[in-house]
Amino acid sequence: MIDVWVDSIIGGLLLGLVYGLAAIGLNLIWGVMKVINLSHGAFMALGMFVIYLLFTAFGIFPYFGLVIVIGLGLVLGMLTYFVALHRVIDAPELSTLLATFSVSLFIIGVGTFVFTTIPYAIDISLGSISFGNITILGTKVATGLISIAFTAILYVFLYKTRLGKAIRAVSMNRVAAELMGVNTTFILALSFGIGIALAMSAGALIATIFPFTILSGGVYELKSFVICVLGGLGSPLGALVGGIVLGMIENVVTLQIPTSYVPVIEFSILVLILLLKPSGLLGGKV
């Protein structure tokens, strides 16, 4: 019995790290731009399909394909910013909400046309390690480690580089940052690009462990929202912790209760946190 627990904890941890990575993308965009990115899930789904196509059409091994996904995410994100968001960035939040929602509709609409809504899967295996009933899949370990690595890189970027500091400055006060000579329009576009790149790479990583459809992003988008609230908006580390909490709930708590209660628990947590500690467990600014 104990081995089942250990297995669940490891599984929850590894999955939680990916959830965390996805949430960081959402978090960064909210923190810097005060935009609730409703196209988050759609871009995750896009990441899944990009990595799938790279793998099936060009034979690029998914973990190397990630580099391309990130580059593409940056470009697409920045493009999306200028096309859809730039003109409404100073408008009330409803406008940006609708703008990102329309981007999401666009991606999912085209995606459905091209790929239909049937499931796809990336069939790779990195083997597995077993001790008794504990079986850890290589692919899950890889996604967990990559998620940690990406979070660490993002952290260093935000705290140690000039551009990263500018992003944090913009998140704290855009006018002040502009008055320091920061091209805040570029920084906003860049932040959106990074957020999208993170969403897409999280999607790509998830695609290496689970099957997916063009609609799969929605589920993870919801999880990302819960994680952001849980971990505190604007805190990358908080998002990672929030992700792990969610992964644990899904894998460990369900040993004792029916799995169908998971959304109930998740959203109860959401409401409770909003009521009791709106800044999140590790609340704070970027």
């Binding site: 089942v4 297995d7 669940s8 599984g11 609609l215 799969s216 894998n251 040993l255 959304p263």
Partner: peptide, 20 residues
């Protein structure tokens, strides 16, 4: 005796229960 949501892609919690 348990249901999973339509569209479920992660069965690990069910599998863990089955293992248990």
């Amino acid at each position: 005796f348990e249901a999973y949501a339509p569209g479920t892609t992660d069965f690990s919690s069910f599998i863990n229960k089955i293992l248990a």
